[in-house]
Structures are given as structure tokens and as C-alpha cells.
């Protein structure tokens, strides 16, 4: 067991626990975006930033990837952390303002406007879909491509991947386009973009072993004789 201090409270956690998990165990709220239970920590969005150490040696780290260390002093909501977090949210808002998830986070942090050049990209490169595809769907059909400002997510050569089972898991976990993939709660869907997509499981027959992210599955229930 490892004992560390989070916001002045001592907590003992098992070896291998991340600072984020320890803080959540104590009930301290840390906003996350690229983090998702069941997927490996990635540290892409930096929203879960916390301050570790004391005095001039204190530094900001992403809590989702930082392992708990004995005697570690963590502050989850110091002035420095809040300023950094707000800046990150503003930048996210600048790149992807239409995302409901980012909007919710921004309003929670009382951000009503941002001061950067407005873009309307549909991806924040959080890598949730990439990890979902690889780790939960065992497909590895999509991945990161290119680098720098040309970085994007997609299939190799932009052609439909042979290993893709069209399970829809990537759309389901996407924080930027979550509006158009509320299969399980169709009454909440606003944009209707998914109306053109047939539920993936309807094509179940074409795949030997189709795993599905939806449980219980609406489409399968409908299809049952």
C-alpha cells in the first residue's frame, strides 16, 4: 500500500493506482475528457491536471497517467491548477465548440467565452476511439496518422478497413461528436445525423464474432424473433 496526501488528506492506495483514481476514491472531482474507464490512460487532453510537490519544485502533471508515489503531495484544485485547466478548456472550446461534452465542462468551470481563433474541427485527437477500437473491440481498424497540425484519426489510406466490423464503438465513445450517437437514448438525439446509419448489429450475420459496445442492445432486441 502506498500512502499519499491529496488536498491535505492522507489516503492509502494499492501500488499501481494513478493519482486520478486515488483522488476519485476520496471524492475530489477532477474533470476528464480523454480518460475512460476500461481504456488505458493516455494523457492527451491534460484536463485532469493536478499540482504535485511543494514550493518552487511543485509541478503540473496529468493525474490520469501519474502513478501514486509514497509521500506524494497532491493538490487537485489549487489556483495554478484551476488556471491551467481553464486555459485547456478554452483551447478545447476553440478547436471544437460544437461538442456537448466540452460545452458542459466549460460551463461547469464558468467559461463563457474563449479568446482564440475559432475553429470548427470535429476531432480533438483525444484518442478515445483509437483505444476503444484496439483495446475493447480488438480490431485496430483506426489509428493516428501524420503528425503536428496534420495529425488525424482514421483508417490507413482512408479506405474502409478490412478489420473494421462497423461496431460503432468509436462513434459511441467520441466526446466531440457525441450528439449524433445516442443510440441507447434516441429521444435525446438532436441532430439526427445517425438516422442514416443502420444500427451496426443488424449486420451481425456478416461477422463470426461480433462484440458490441451496447448492452443491453436495442437493435438486437428488435431483431429477436
Amino acid at each position: 500500500m502506498i500512502t499519499l496526501t491529496i488536498n491535505g488528506l492522507d489516503v492509502s492506495v494499492e501500488k499501481g493506482t494513478t493519482v486520478l483514481e486515488a483522488a476519485q476514491f476520496l471524492g475530489f472531482p477532477i474533470p476528464t475528457l480523454c480518460h475512460m474507464e476500461g481504456l488505458t490512460p493516455y494523457g492527451a487532453c491534460r484536463l485532469c491536471v493536478v499540482e504535485i510537490g511543494e514550493g518552487p519544485g511543485a509541478k503540473l502533471v496529468s493525474s490520469c497517467t501519474y502513478p501514486a508515489e509514497p509521500g506524494l503531495k497532491v493538490r487537485t484544485a489549487s489556483l495554478r491548477v484551476m488556471r491551467a485547466r481553464k486555459m485547456i478548456l478554452e483551447l478545447l472550446l476553440a478547436s471544437c465548440p460544437q461538442s456537448k461534452e466540452i460545452q458542459d465542462l466549460a460551463s461547469k468551470h464558468e467559461i463563457t467565452q474563449q479568446r482564440f481563433r475559432q475553429e470548427y474541427s470535429d476531432c480533438i485527437l483525444c484518442g478515445r476511439c483509437v483505444r476503444m477500437c484496439e483495446e475493447q473491440m480488438m480490431a485496430k481498424a483506426i489509428g493516428f496518422r501524420g503528425r503536428g497540425e496534420k495529425r488525424s484519426i482514421g483508417t490507413p489510406f482512408d479506405v474502409p478497413s478490412e478489420v473494421c466490423r462497423q461496431c460503432g464503438g468509436c462513434i459511441y465513445v467520441c466526446p466531440a461528436c457525441s450528439l449524433r450517437c445516442t443510440y441507447t437514448q434516441p429521444e435525446k438525439a438532436i441532430c439526427g445525423g445517425c438516422a442514416n446509419l443502420s444500427p451496426p448489429c443488424l449486420q451481425k450475420d456478416s461477422f463470426d464474432d461480433m462484440m458490441c459496445y451496447m448492452d443491453p442492445c436495442v437493435a438486437c432486441e428488435i431483431k429477436k424473433p
Binding site: 485496430k140 483506426i142 489509428g143 501524420g146 503528425r147 483508417t155 489510406f157 478497413s161 478489420v163
Partner: peptide, 12 residues
């Protein structure tokens, strides 16, 4: 190896 990984390296 998956084509996705190779493609990621090639485009990088």
C-alpha cells in the same frame, strides 16, 4: 503487425 500501426509510422 496491424496496418494501422505501420501507416501511423509511415505518415509520421
Amino acid at each position: 503487425e496491424s496496418l494501422t500501426d505501420i501507416y501511423a509510422v509511415v505518415t509520421f
